[in-house]
């Protein structure tokens, strides 16, 4: 008897959960998600590599490359804070799952053709 009220209430209110694949929550603005770089701004100083606690970033001055192992990244955002030219940023979404391991490699182009190549 005393449950009737609850049952009726539950029948008439909307779902308590989200219908996930069809309805997705907006990510929070300042969530620490995937690590990205604006390669044109990067000065290849290597501070991010030094500060990273999981040592997932490697910067090569000679080859002008900036590499990150996204599977080792712990999303702490230390590199973003440490970068002197603020060329690193974090997306508010996480990376989607992958079937295979991969490395993200960015190569800095000479100044004329400033188009970052990502693989």
């Amino acid at each position: 008897m005393f449950m009737t009220k609850t049952i009726l209430k539950n029948l008439l209110t909307k779902y308590a959960t989200r219908l996930y694949p069809f309805q997705k929550r907006e990510p929070f603005k300042h969530s620490k998600g995937e690590l990205k770089i604006v390669m044109e701004k990067c000065i290849l100083c290597g501070v991010c590599q030094m500060r990273c606690p999981s040592q997932c970033i490697s910067v090569d001055k000679q080859a002008k490359t900036w590499k990150v192992d996204p599977f080792a990244c712990v999303y702490c955002g230390v590199c973003v804070d440490a970068c002197p030219v603020k060329c690193l940023y974090q997306e508010s979404l996480y990376r989607t799952p992958l079937a295979e391991k991969d490395m993200v490699v960015h190569v800095q182009q000479p100044k004329e053709a400033a188009e970052p190549a990502a693989t």
Binding site: F28, H30, S31, K32, V74, Y75, C76, G77, V78
Partner: peptide, 15 residues
């Protein structure tokens, strides 16, 4: 958990 994600950026390990 949502509060933590909004304010700190991560849900559990706030850093």
């Amino acid at each position: 958990m949502d509060l933590q994600e909004e304010t700190a950026g991560n849900r559990v390990i706030l850093s």
